[in-house]
Simulated assay, not measured.
Amino acid sequence: MLPSTVERVPQHTSEAVNAQIRRETEERVAILAAAGREAIDQRLNELNREWDIERTLEANAATLSLAGLTLGATINRKWFLFPGIISAFLLQHAVQGWCPPLPVFRRLGIRTASEIDYERYALKALRGDFDHLKNGSEQLASEQLLQTMRR
């Protein structure tokens, strides 16, 4: 059975690396909770620009494939095998969630989109972006009462 899109990278990453990524994320959120709204806003902007593991792997595969094509066209035709191998690894990653550069990138701290979103939504919650949802039913009841009183 194939792993889900959300689970496939963490399943193929050592638990120690997954734990380190989680710990670093939680530490950043805790520091920013004390730093205030301006620091949270700045970090949210940084998160919008952060490359996730998928984008990193795609850029890596494209770069290596182009290098192989260039070397094949200019140095030796045997280099044309290199883009084929890279494409096979990229397909393996798409299906299984693993490819040779994955452990290296994960150890470097490259996160999945879900891991980035976890930090993003924790910071938004700290900033108060979701406060209106907590009191949604109370606000609705108040609005209905005001409308009833106006009639």
Rank of each mutant, 00 (worst) to 15 (best):
Q20T: 09
T5L: 08
T13R: 12
N76D: 15
F80M: 01
L146K: 15
W98I: 06
C99V: 01
Y118M: 12
R77E: 15
E119G: 06
H132Q: 07
T13D: 12
A30Q: 14
I53M: 04
K134Y: 11
E26W: 09
I116R: 09
R106S: 05
T25P: 02
N135T: 15
G84V: 10
G36R: 05
C99F: 00
F89N: 12
E15A: 02
G68R: 03
Y121I: 01
G36S: 06
T5Q: 09
V104H: 05
Q92L: 15
G36C: 01
S65D: 02
Q11L: 15
P3N: 11
T25V: 07
C99P: 00
A67P: 00
M149Q: 11
R28F: 00
T112M: 06
A62F: 04
L47P: 01
A141G: 03
F105N: 13
D131G: 13
F82S: 08
E119T: 04
L66Q: 12
A125G: 11
A67V: 07
K134A: 12
V95N: 04
E119D: 04
I110M: 12
E58C: 07
P101T: 08
V6C: 10
E27G: 05
A67T: 06
A62I: 02
L69P: 01
R23K: 13
S14P: 00
L146A: 15
T63M: 08
A61M: 06
A16F: 11
N18I: 04
A113L: 02
G68S: 02
L81S: 10
R43W: 01
V17Y: 01
K78C: 06
V6Y: 09
L126D: 09
S14V: 03
D41N: 15
E26G: 00
E24T: 03
L64V: 10
Q20G: 09
A33Y: 05
T112N: 03
A122F: 02
L133D: 08
V9P: 04
M1H: 14
A59S: 07
R22T: 05
Q147M: 03
L146S: 12
G136K: 14
A19P: 06
E24D: 08
L71Q: 03
L146R: 15
L133S: 11
R8N: 01
V29I: 11
E26A: 05
N45M: 09
Y118K: 13
C99H: 02
V17H: 01
S114M: 10
R107S: 13
N45D: 13
R111P: 14
G68I: 02
A122I: 02
R28Y: 01
G97E: 00
K124S: 05
